Simulated assay, not measured.
Amino acid sequence: MELIRKGKVREVYADGDDVILVASDRVSVYDVVLPTPVPDKGAILTQISLWWFRQFADLVPNHVISEDVPEEWKGRAVRCKRLEIVPVECIVRGYLAGGGLESYRETGSVSGVAFPPGLVEADRLPQPVFTPSTKADEGHDEYISVEEIAEDLGEETTNRLRDLSLEIYDRGAEIARERGVLIADTKFEFGKDADGVLTLADEVLTPDSSRFWKASEYEPGRGQWSYDKQFVRDWSSTLTGWDRTYPGPEIPADVVAETRARYIEIYEQLTGDTWT
C-alpha cells in the first residue's frame, strides 16, 4: 500500500479504490508532535470515533467502509471511502475555552462571531456556535469567518457545513451529558464523495479533537477537569525551556500514564464498554 498522507497523529494509505486511515499513539500539542507516545491512544481514538459514527448515522453519511485492515493495524485503523476533503476545520463551541477564550479576550469574538461581554473561562455560551478555522497540515490553523468560507466554497456548501456541524454537536452533547460529560468544543472534518455528497470524515468527538469535561466538577471561571489531551497541554505549559516549536519535549512517565488513563476513562464513560 502507498502512504499518501502523514498527519500529526494519523497516516492515510491507498488500497485500491479505498483508503486506510491509521491512528498512531503520537501526541501533538500546539501543533508540535511530541516524541513520547501514549500507549493505546490510536486504538482508543479509533474505537471512540466508530462508536460516534454509529450515533450519527441517520444525520450524516460517514466515510467508514469497514474495519477490514491489515493485521498490524487491527483496532486502530479503518477502511474508508476516498473523499475530496473540504479545507476547513468545522469547529463548534458550546463553552468558552482554549483558543476561543483567547480570541474572545482579545477581540470579544471568534471567527467573526461576537460573544456577549463579561464571559469568563468555561462559561456556557447562550447557544453552540460555529467558529471555523483554516486547515493547516503544517503550522497553525487560523480562524476564518463563515463569509470567507462562502467565498471559496459557495453559500450552499458553507451553510450545509455549519448546519451539519451544529446538528452533530447538539446530539453528541446531549448523549455525553446523559453520561456525565460536557463537550466544551470540538472540530469536525468533512469531505465530498464521488457524487458530491458531504460526508463526515477523519475522527469524531474524540479526546484529541474535543474538550471533554467532568460534569460533576464543572465550575465556570477556572480550568476544568478534562478527559482529553488538555492534561498534556497543561503539563507542557509549565515548562520554562520550551517555546512551543519543534522539537517538542519528552513526556514524563507519570504524565503518559495519566493521559492514557483519562483516554480510557472517557471511552468507558461514553460507550459503556470496558477497555481491554
Rank of each mutant, 00 (worst) to 15 (best):
I4N: 11
R5W: 09
K8A: 08
K8E: 04
V9F: 07
V9K: 04
V12L: 10
Y13P: 09
G16K: 07
G16A: 05
D17L: 01
D18Y: 11
I20N: 07
I20V: 11
S24Y: 08
R26A: 14
V27E: 02
Y30T: 09
V32W: 05
P35F: 05
P35D: 08
A57M: 07
P61Y: 03
P61Q: 02
N62H: 09
V64H: 03
I65L: 13
S66G: 03
V69N: 04
P70S: 01
E72F: 08
W73H: 12
W73E: 06
K74V: 10
R76F: 10
V78K: 06
C80I: 08
R82Q: 14
L83Y: 05
V88F: 02
C90M: 02
C90T: 04
Y95P: 06
Y95F: 12
A97C: 12
G98R: 01
G98C: 09
G99D: 13
E102S: 15
Y104M: 07
R105A: 14
E106K: 15
E106Y: 09
T107R: 15
S109Y: 00
S111I: 00
S111T: 01
A114S: 14
A114I: 10
P117S: 12
V120W: 04
V120H: 11
E121H: 13
D123E: 10
P126G: 04
Q127F: 11
P132E: 01
P132M: 01
S133L: 05
S133G: 02
S133C: 06
T134V: 07
K135R: 05
A136S: 10
D137F: 11
D137V: 12
G139L: 07
H140Q: 13
I144N: 02
V146F: 14
E147K: 10
I149L: 04
I149R: 06
I149G: 12
I149M: 04
D152Q: 15
G154V: 08
E155Q: 15
E156N: 13
R162W: 02
R162S: 08
D163I: 03
D163T: 11
I168G: 07
I168K: 06
Y169K: 03
Y169E: 00
A173D: 07
E174H: 10
E174L: 13
E174R: 15
E178P: 08
G180P: 02
L182A: 06
L182E: 01
L182N: 05
I183G: 04
I183T: 00
E189N: 04
D193V: 05
G196Q: 09
L205C: 03
D208K: 06
S209G: 03
S209Q: 06
S216T: 11
E219D: 13
E219K: 15
P220A: 00
P220T: 02
G221N: 05
G221Y: 03
R222P: 03
S226A: 14
Y227T: 09
K229H: 02
Q230N: 05
D234V: 00
S236Y: 00
S237C: 01
T238V: 04
L239M: 03
D243W: 00
R244I: 12
Y246M: 14
P247E: 11
E250D: 13
A253M: 07
D254K: 12
A257K: 14
A261Q: 14
I264G: 10
E265S: 13
I266C: 08
E268S: 01
Q269P: 00
G272T: 01
